[in-house]
Write a protein that binds this DNA or RNA. Structure first.
Length: 664
DNA sequence: CTAGGGTTAG
């Protein structure tokens, strides 16, 4: 009683005052110290004992294993003069818990050879090891032994067998065992609940949960984490609230799951309340909870609070570091991200990807290639998400050479038919102007999602193959595998606009809400205005833009203005220009756009006027530019001037080529 | 001495 409720120091003090030595009291003290996490004290007590029995040995072995001190535990195990069933079991289960299932199985065989028969506890650990190894045959051997020793109707053993079958995706066997069990406990029910989630039947899992005869914090935790993992964060949080209301005390796993759900909802207020509870229980130093807290605060934009949570984690694992690096990346604190990244003691794949994703989000492309080559040098194997990020950078830079190189690496690493990598490749080749390669990859993709289709349609349209883009869209509609999304429809409208299929475009635009139930946004409207303006249906375009339910983009007016210029409608041009000037007052981009629009319309005086106006207002947005890559080196061409240092040569050559073409 | 639940990127 005293040991369970008392403070370790008081009791250790008592022991010193205790006259003489009592083996039983001493053993109790060792287990108590282990319970309190006082590993060194427990070890010292053990080492100083004048005599030890099998309980002492078992306690120290299992205690060391509980804290992951495998080698020391084995050292004691090998010197144990009383190799009883208990100490064998302690060693085997400890090894399994530390992920050393092969070692555990070897020990189990040794145990059998030494003539000791397993009990139900030993068997549960051994079955778990078979499951971790996903070894069906090994599992069947153990099952034979179970039947032989007569434990096939044991509750714990049956529970373990359910999990073993689930791990091997044999839900039928798992269900059979569950149904045949005479008595079931909360573990059995929780396992079967998880089975329904595994086969994708979350609703059925919820039914099991609601009808379970008995629930504990693990059952709650399972259900909450499953909701969170399958993207239903609201339901996860709801369930958490119910759990607390019903008087269950959430444990670490549960807090970690609910924090993750709150992070995806960016619910900072609720997050702070939960954080309060965690502080009350003193669990904020835990690695699982800590990394979830870091993630929560960073997703809500508070990297400072995130950092405080990070710094208070006692034993940081790689996930903690990754969460913090990802948090900085997310909030455009890329220097902090890199600085922290460099300090990660043992980086994993996600560490690299978190940093790369940050650079991608904020368009720091050079850094991406730098980090990527560091990654390769460090020996870390890029994953499919590494490839999709780095390929995306190549696409943004239209960097064909680098893209091809990556394509080769991806094939070598066996990512050639991964949906994410393939989509990134389709996009990269299309953006770099190599439509043929883009098409080739798209055609042989075994599976496609809406992003793959969008990349292909957009890619074709942008490279001047608008009709083909529309043909691909029609092919998409025939697959009927999923409904198009707004981005896909934007690509379709873009294609219609670029091949003059105005009525078809209008048809698609009108079917967006009616057929596909997609809310059209300002970019879709701009596309339609562009479409109408290009084909000379100017008054229709103007009416369309004025009837828009949302605020039109400046680009919509610009498209109309450009149409006015092409079809020489001076009066409308005046009206539109007026409108653009109004909008341009509001944002700096507007001025640049306006000056570019005027420039292309040939009104140089107005251009000069606009640029002057911008200068006066202190607006410093650079004009548009274009670039091309030669031998991995980008060359930039700005629209205002001949800023490229070989521009006169380039333009000269261009002129020469033009005359050649005319001569032919 | 045991079975069931946990955090990060895309």
């Amino acid at each position: 009683m005293y040991l369970k409720s008392g403070k370790p120091n008081d009791i250790n003090q008592m022991l010193k005052e205790f006259d003489g030595f009592n083996l039983v009291v001493h053993n109790c003290l060792i287990s108590a110290n282990l319970e309190w996490g006082k590993l060194e004290e427990a070890r010292q007590l053990f080492d100083e004992m004048p005599e030890r029995n099998e309980v002492s040995w078992t306690a120290i072995i299992s205690g060391l294993l509980r804290y992951g001190r495998v080698e020391e535990a084995i050292w004691y195990f090998e010197r144990n003069p009383f190799p009883s069933l208990f100490s064998w079991t302690a060693a085997i289960s400890g090894l399994v818990q530390n992920g050393l299932s092969v070692k555990a199985m070897k020990l189990f065989v040794e145990m059998l050879q030494s003539g000791v028969l397993p009990n139900n506890v030993t068997l549960t650990s051994v079955i778990r090891a078979c499951g971790e190894l996903s070894d069906f045959n090994l599992g069947m051997c153990v099952l034979g032994l179970i039947v032989k020793v007569g434990f096939e109707h044991d509750l714990s053993v049956s529970n373990s067998l359910i999990t073993f079958n689930l791990r091997l995706n044999d839900t039928v066997s798992a269900m059979t065992i569950f149904n045949r069990m005479q008595s079931k406990d909360v573990v059995s029910w929780t396992a079967i609940l998880d089975m329904y989630v595994q086969i994708g039947q979350l609703a059925e899992a919820r039914r099991v949960f609601d009808e379970m005869p008995e629930r504990n914090e693990v059952s709650w935790s399972t259900m909450i984490s499953r909701y969170s993992q399958s993207g239903d964060a609201e339901e996860a949080v709801n369930l958490f609230i119910h759990m607390v209301q019903q008087g269950f005390k959430p444990n670490k796993s549960c807090f970690a799951s609910v924090l993750s759900a709150l992070a995806s909802l960016e619910a900072s207020v609720m997050g702070k309340i939960v954080h309060g509870h965690i502080l009350k229980f003193g669990m904020e130093r835990d690695a699982f909870i800590g990394s979830s807290l870091v993630d929560l605060y960073c997703k809500c934009g508070g990297t400072k609070d995130g950092r405080v949570a990070f710094d208070s984690i006692l034993e940081k694992n790689v996930v903690c570091w990754n969460s913090m690096v990802g948090g900085y990346s997310l909030n455009n604190q890329l220097e902090e991200a890199k600085e922290l990244f460099d300090k990660i003691p043992r980086k994993d794949n996600i560490s690299w990807n978190s940093l790369i994703t940050g650079y991608l989000e904020y368009e720091k492309f050079d850094e991406i290639f730098e980090v990527f080559s560091d990654m390769l040098l460090s020996g870390e194997r890029p994953s499919k998400s590494t490839f999709s990020s780095v390929l995306c950078a190549c696409a943004s830079l239209a960097s064909l050479e680098r893209g091809k190189n990556l394509h080769g690496k991806a094939i070598k690493l066996g990512f050639h038919s991964d949906i994410f990598v393939d989509t990134a490749l389709v996009d990269m080749y299309a953006k770099s102007g190599d439509v043929e390669s883009s098409k080739k990859i798209f055609k042989r993709m075994p599976k496609r999602n809406e992003i793959s289709w969008t990349a292909m349609i957009q890619g074709l349209a942008e490279n001047g193959f608008a009709e083909e883009a529309l043909a691909v869209f029609e092919e998409f509609e025939q697959t009927k595998s999923f409904a198009p999304n707004e981005l896909l429809m934007l690509a379709v409208l873009f294609a219609c606009s670029h091949c003059g299929l105005v009525d078809k475009g209008l048809y698609y635009f009108n079917s967006m809400e009616k057929v596909y139930h997609i809310q059209s946004n300002d970019r879709h409207y701009t596309c339609v205005v562009d479409m109408l303006s290009r084909s000379g249906r100017l008054s229709e375009a103007e009416k369309f833009i004025l009837d828009m339910p949302c605020e039109p983009e400046v680009q919509a007016w610009a498209a109309l203005l450009s149409g006015c210029k092409t079809y020489r409608n001076e009066r409308m041009a005046e009206r539109v220009a007026e409108k653009i000037s109004e909008l341009a007052e509001k944002n700096p981009g507007g001025y640049v756009l306006l000056s570019n629009v005027y420039a292309s319309a040939g009104r140089w005086l107005d251009v000069l006027h606009m640029r002057k106006l911008m200068k006066e207002k202190g607006l410093k947005k650079s004009g548009g530019y274009s670039w091309i890559e030669v031998r991995n080196q980008p060359h930039f061409f700005y629209s205002q001037d001949g800023s490229h240092n070989e521009s006169s040569e380039i333009y000269g050559l261009l002129e020469l080529m033009r005359s050649e073409m005319v001569l032919k």
